[in-house]
Design a protein around this nucleic acid. Structure first.
Lengths: 341, 341
DNA sequence: GTGAAAGCGCTAACAG
DNA sequence: CTGTTAGCGCTTTCAC
């Protein structure tokens, strides 16, 4: 019932625990015959090393924390996959905590992870600056943090992985224009997260370039849920601002907006084309399916995990920023006959 | 840089580590003055107990595993919340692993968790019987398992938490009938999971009762994704089987089905009403919004965590089965004027 | 090639 | 009320 320990094997074979340990670890100075006996006994008695003891010995917890703003979309779950693909293999556990878009909850999560003695943290933050001091403290105390997706300001010297938001947002705007759209709304993300401003900038650059930029069409939202998308569009309609398409910061905003339009009997994409930036299964779960910028989420997770392990193994290693390539996927929500495509 | 230990405090205050430990743990026999000094020093030096050392001492890892079939819907994320609400407070970490609906992956996940020395496992399984022997082995080796949602056959004496599937499915069928539906399709879940058969039975019972049961309308699916829902409906249309409504095993099946119908120009709910069983935000992310049986997911998680802790604290404690109450939510996808409602 | 001993950080008898 | 000791399970000097 109780797990077999080295001591058990030691008694069983009349060998010292150090010899057993060496045999199991494939050390050089060990008699082949002895090793064989040890391996057999270990097999027979179902020996499994006690990870807690190992952790204590090596001064590691062999666990890392993953803190994400939300889990209602599969975004974080996909990133988690990448992280686990890399870390589980090398014996690392990952503990996921959700901040619900609240910087205060994020704070609690980080504190909890420190109490858990995690060896490192992978973080998709809620607010660019709010917890900046805390991030610095945690790293000072010896727990490296790697950021992805939503990253902090440049004040912090940290590793991070992002996508080429500006370019992809530009391309998406070009796509809408190429299908004949002239009054393109942008549903902005929170001004407190970097990629929201990046995407907005990409959008704006292209619209200006084509001489169709109108500040009225750049609409601030109060969050990133379905509800926020709906509210934003409702407001537009109420104000009587005309538009023929929407580019949203994120799938959830886009879907919220789209469903409200459909509810109002407005046809998508015929009357209003819609697209977004994200890359989750959500964009294919609606009708019409959403054109979207798909991010390589699993790769992002893997990259973040890799960067984190670099820091864990050598805390003085250089910080690195990885920019991954996202790609546009055209679907029904922007499929208008009139386009050049 | 290096964390403060008891030894550091001991040196600092010229007290033995045991006294320090006792002071920190609020033991009875300790001079108030001493305690005060210790607490102050601990505060000042930023002492944080080393959880790994504690774990070794107490023979626990203070972590549990959560194994779920999928994470593309927020189902598991909601359950996770409940689990964490209960467990994080008492210092427990939860490690989530996804089986991707594959019993073999589930196997790997369970094996990994054993290697991680988790103190217990909460499991939503992929297949009622496939890994039954493994579950038994793991429990025999001392790691309790608590099941929720999809539970194993009765051969295993385990704690579990479920909802009243049969009743709720019946009520949903009644609801469809009350809105005037007569040709009600059921998109079945996998025959290898208990609640799929329960829900199908509830559906069948009501349709038989009303004399409108037709075996042709009980359609087998080959999985639970959007794609599987689409395929099932496509097949129905191809065969020319008439129907005026669909009750799906799960949100994903329902949505896949609905979007295919919309694609074909079939109106929902006017021509075909749709509803499902689940309780995630997904049902409100589509248009029209899905009527659905909502499960108390967070409560399920909390209950499962509670049952697991019972087992962890006393391995000989009785197994218990908790049946929680789900509730019907009527939304646009079944809103037909013709009903009695 | 093997064993003895120390130590990772902490707690809990057992003595005083 | 406080200190000494042992031990959780494992690895790694240091001897032999």
């Amino acid at each position: 019932m109780k797990p077999t320990t080295l001591k058990d094997l030691s008694r069983h074979l009349s060998l010292s625990t150090s010899t057993i340990s060496r045999a199991l670890l494939n050390h050089k100075n060990i008699h082949p015959e002895t090793r064989k006996r040890v391996l057999e006994a270990a097999e027979m008695l179902g020996y499994q090393p006690n990870t807690t003891a190992l952790n204590l010995r090596y001064g590691k917890s062999k666990s890392i924390g993953l803190v994400v703003p939300e889990m209602v979309t599969p975004f974080s779950a996909n990133v988690l996959k990448g992280i686990q693909a890399f870390l589980n293999n090398i014996g690392y556990k990952v503990i996921i905590l959700v901040s619900d878009e609240s910087p205060d909850t994020e704070r609690d999560n980080l504190t909890l992870l420190e109490r858990f003695n995690v060896d490192g943290i992978i973080l998709n933050l809620c607010h660019e600056t709010y917890n900046q001091a805390l991030y610095a403290q945690i790293m000072e105390r010896g727990t490296p943090i790697v950021f992805f997706d939503r990253i902090p300001g440049n004040a912090l010297d940290v590793s991070k992985v992002i996508v080429n938001d500006h370019i992809q947002a530009s391309l998406m705007a070009e796509h809408l224009i190429s299908t004949g759209c002239k009054r393109i709304v942008h549903l902005m993300g929170p001004p407190t997260v970097r990629n929201a401003t990046e995407r907005a900038a990409g959008y704006q650059r292209i619209l200006v370039k084509h001489g169709i930029f109108d500040p009225e069409l750049m609409v601030k939202t109060h969050g990133t849920t379905f509800g926020h998308g709906k509210e934003a569009v409702k407001e537009l309609l109420k104000k009587g601002i005309a538009f023929d398409s929407i580019f949203a910061f994120t799938d959830t905003l886009a879907i919220g907006a789209m469903n409200y339009l459909l509810e109002q009997g407005i046809r998508v994409p015929e009357e209003v084309a819609i697209c977004s930036f994200s890359g989750t299964e959500l964009s294919t779960s609606v009708f019409p399916q959403l054109s979207s910028v798909e991010q390589p989420l699993k790769e992002m997770g893997e990259a973040a995990a890799r960067l984190l392990m670099d820091k864990i193994q050598d805390s003085s290693s250089d910080s690195r920023t990885l920019v991954l390539d996202a790609k546009l996927i055209y679907r029904g929500s922007t499929a208008r006959g009139s386009g050049k495509h």
